[in-house]
Amino acid sequence: MLQTSIFFRTCRELLPYLFKWGVGLTIYAFVTMWMTPLVSQPAVFSRFSKIFAAFSSIVPQSVPSNAGYWIIAAAFLFILPLVMSISLIWAGGSLVAKSEENGELTLWLAQPVARWQIILQKYGALLTLAVALTALVFILMLICNWLLKINLSPGALALGCLSNVLTALTNGSLAFLLGVVKGRTTPSRLIGIVVMVLMYLLFLFPSLPNALRLLSPFTINASLSPLNPHPSIWTLPALLGVNVLLYLASQIGFEQRDLNI
C-alpha cells in the first residue's frame, strides 16, 4: 500500500524553494515588462540588431519581429529554462541526499516502507515543485502577453511552459539521481550545475554538429518556442522519455545501494 506521508512532508520542505524562486521569477517578469517599451524605441531596437542576428542563428525558426516578441522568445529559450533548471537542480540534488545526511532516511528505513516508495514520493515532490513553478511562469507569461499586446495564443504559451519545465526537470532529475546514488547534497548539486552548463553551451553554439546539439535538452526545448510557427511535438515525448529514464535509474540506483556503511 502506498504511503504518502513522506511526499507531503517533502512538499512542505520545498515550500521555501517555491517561494524564493517564485519571487525571483515574478521580479524577472516585471523587469521584462518594464524593459519592453524601452527596447521597443526604434533607436534602441536597432542597437540590438547584432544580438537578434545571433539569436536567429541559434534558433533559426524563431525570427523576432519586435522587441516584445524578442523578449518573450528570449525568456522561453534562454532565461526561463535556465532559471527553472537551477531551481530544480537545487531541489532535486537535496531531496534524498539531505534526508540521508540528516539521519532521517535511516529512521524511515527502520519503518515498514519500501525503498521504491521513498524514491517515488521524493520524485513526486520534485514534480509537484516543477508543476507549481510552471503554473506560476504560465500566469506571468499570460500577463506579459496581455500587457505587452503580443497576442500569442495561450496554447502556444502553455506548450512553451511545458517544454521549459520538462527541460528543467531533465536537469533536476539528473541531480536527483546523483543525490540518490551518492547520498551527498553538495556534490549532487555541483555536478548537476556543471552538466547543465555544458548542455547550455551545446545549445548556444550553432557551429557544433546538429546531432551533438540535440543531446542538449535546451536545443530540444528550442523547437517548442511559442514563436515557432511549426513546433515539433515529438520533442515533448523525447524530453518526457529522458525524465522517465532518469527516474527509473534513480529507483534502480537506490534499490542496489548499500546505505550508511
Partner: peptide, 26 residues
C-alpha cells in the same frame, strides 16, 4: 524496532513531529 548507532539527526522539526511522521509510516 531498530535504534541505529550515531544517528546524527538534524533539522528544524521537533521530536514529536519526527515521531508522528514515523508513526504514520507504521
Amino acid at each position: 524496532g531498530y535504534a541505529p548507532a550515531d544517528c546524527s539527526l538534524r533539522g528544524r522539526q521537533s521530536g514529536a513531529e519526527l515521531l508522528h511522521n514515523l508513526a504514520k509510516l507504521r
